[in-house]
């Protein structure tokens, strides 16, 4: 048994009086890759927001490594890798700038990079194979490179909890393989990685655990035990045929 890193205790989140997530309880250990599976609107992003401290639960409590969320933010413990749709790719920043943003939490008020920051950014970029592309404006990257750039930012942040939102949507095989290898390495190093995804095939290949969510936690635990046809049909509110359809659709978007 490793140490508990993400501890969600009986959390209920509501927006304008409407409950988005009800009585969720999850304990994730260090060195675990966990898939987060559910339909759109099932509360996946709400769960992410609760872990990042963007929403205050009406009931329950979230802590990371035993620390309250404010402390977690101050110590840069949680890194979030956004979906590609959430990013303004025309923004006038280059790849290097974006990865450096992962270091802001460690810098002084003026955010002047120290040599340690530059070194970490260089290592992160080299790790995802984008060092040679560092002066490119982010919109000039390919779909897979864009993902890797934001992954590098999460690495540079040196957070021990990673939240990845649809990391394999629209990426090339090379990027997918590289990212999976890296996730495995990070798991070895004791990171806790939570991946929100529609891509159910990736769950069985490398997720140790899985959370099935539909406005509450339907089931969570080791993939082999939880990732059953019966649980999945409960998650997607219908037959298994429905979820393979949902999966095909999610691929079609890209």
């Amino acid at each position: 048994m490793g140490n508990i890193s993400i501890d969600i205790e009986n959390v209920t989140v509501a927006y304008h009086g409407k409950v988005a997530l009800h009585s969720a309880s999850i304990k994730l250990e260090e060195g675990v890759i966990c898939g987060l599976v559910g339909m759109n609107g099932a509360g996946k992003s709400t769960l992410f927001k609760a872990i990042m401290g963007f929403v205050t639960p009406v009931r329950g409590n979230v802590s990371i490594h035993g620390l309250p969320i404010r402390q977690v933010q101050k110590r840069n413990l949680v890194a979030y890798v956004p979906q590609s749709e959430e990013v303004d790719w025309k923004f006038p920043v280059d790849v290097y700038d974006v990865v450096m943003m992962g270091r802001y939490g460690y810098m002084n008020l003026l955010r002047i990079p120290r040599s340690i920051d530059k070194q970490v950014v260089k290592e992160s970029l080299e790790r995802v194979g984008l060092w040679d592309m560092r002066f490119k404006q982010i919109g000039e990257l390919s779909g897979g490179q864009k993902k890797r750039a934001f992954f590098a930012r999460a690495l540079a942040q040196q957070a021990t909890v990673l939240l990845l939102d649809e990391p394999f949507a629209g990426v090339d095989i090379k990027t997918e393989k590289l990212m999976i290898d890296m996730l495995m390495e990070l798991r070895q190093a004791g990171y806790t990685i939570l991946i929100s995804t529609h891509d159910l095939s990736s769950i069985t290949t490398f997720c140790d655990q899985v959370i099935l969510i539909n406005r509450t936690i339907l089931a969570y635990g080791n993939t082999s035990e939880v990732f059953t046809e019966e649980n999945l049909s409960r998650t997607f509110g219908g037959s298994v045929g429905d979820f393979s359809g949902a999966k095909a659709n999610s691929r079609d978007q890209y």
């Binding site: 840069n76 956004p82 959430e86 992962g102 942040q157």
Partner: peptide, 8 residues
């Protein structure tokens, strides 16, 4: 989002 998550 990132700004918030690092405590800005």
């Amino acid at each position: 989002t990132h700004a918030r998550s690092i405590g800005l």
